[in-house]
Design a protein around this nucleic acid. Sequence first.
RNA 1: UGGAGCAUCGUCCAGUGGUUAGGACUGCGGUUUUUGGUGCCGCCAACCUAGGUUCGAAUCCUAGUGCUCCAG
Length: 355
Amino acid sequence: MSTVYVGMSGGVDSALAAALLVEQGHDVRGIYMRNWTQDLPGFRCPWADDLADAERVAVTLGIDLDVWDCEQEYRATVADYLVDAYAHGRTPNPDVMCNQTIKFGTFAQRAFAEGADLVATGHYARVEHGRSGVPARLLRAVDEHKDQTYFMWRVSGEMYNRAVFPIGGYANKSAVRAACAERGLGIEDKPDSDGICFIGPVGLRSFLLDTLERRPGDIVEWETGTVLGRHEGAFLFTVGQRRGLDLGGGPARYVVSTDTETNVVYVSADRDCPGLWTRELLLEDARWVAGEAPAAGRYLVRTRHTGPLREASVRPDEGALVRVTFPEPVRTVAPGQSAVVYDGLECMGGGIVAR
RNA sequence: UGGAGCAUCGUCCAGUGGUUAGGACUGCGGUUUUUGGUGCCGCCAACCUAGGUUCGAAUCCUAGUGCUCCAG
């Protein structure tokens, strides 16, 4: 029996995680991380409802639930990070940062400081704890479709040594919901969370338009340099994007690249436009679960959540950069997104696509 | 100013006497997804104006208006 602090979001996954830990006989304490409470125009932040859901589950399980204020850290490391990246023409992945700095940052550190042996979350992932100081290995969930290790690559194996993911072994989401229903947790019908949590249904486009200064510029055909239209800011677009260009009349066009310096958005009607394909990536800000880079060699690499695992050569490059080379070109990899490296089932770590 | 041509969803086109006026793109919504994007599904939306011919007009005729091209 261990003392386990479980992050409870008010959702289905973390509720079942807490329930399973209680059943395993641990001394379980629930923590609701209050990351964001601010409403946006047209969107009421549902944090209080989520907290109420988490509290209901905690009562059912007979455990304590506390609220920890993480708003400062969340704003600085997730929300501001997101805005800054978009302002610089990159396409950030806020959830990756949230896992690093909030769930396995602020939350975990405070839990350990208060005497927790382990922290737990409702992530779809598995850990293999290392013995005697060896970092844990992070493994993909049994449900390959729900696997969330793509968002977890920046966290260290030392941290994962003290983390457990009780639902990582579940076959699929409906099994998780069914397990919640069996236990009478009362939230089995709550919809999955979706989209950037603090932006909600408002949508990224209008959030960015409200947050960043508009900067009208040209939409240019990648092949010919012909000006096809105007945009409200190159920061609104990401590689491969189709919607939002407002170019009627011709064929569908896709964003090939954006240039925040010249404020130009390059587009092509050719889905197989050479500019949309990448054979080689340079990663920056690499992190490795084991604490050090794996030996150069062939691994599996994923450049988007729910994207295929592709074989690729991964090797250190100048400085702290990492070079990833695919035998076959990959379509629409956006700078700012994560490239996550796997060896079989194991998530080794990764980096942020520089170019 | 003469000669010719064209005016149909927001855009680009299809439709030459009887169509629920069709498609593509855009936009909007949904779905997929604990990021962005993609994909998939669905929805909105139009016959330049005024007369006429006809049982019936986007379609034929006349005039007007607008645009394009060739002349000069």
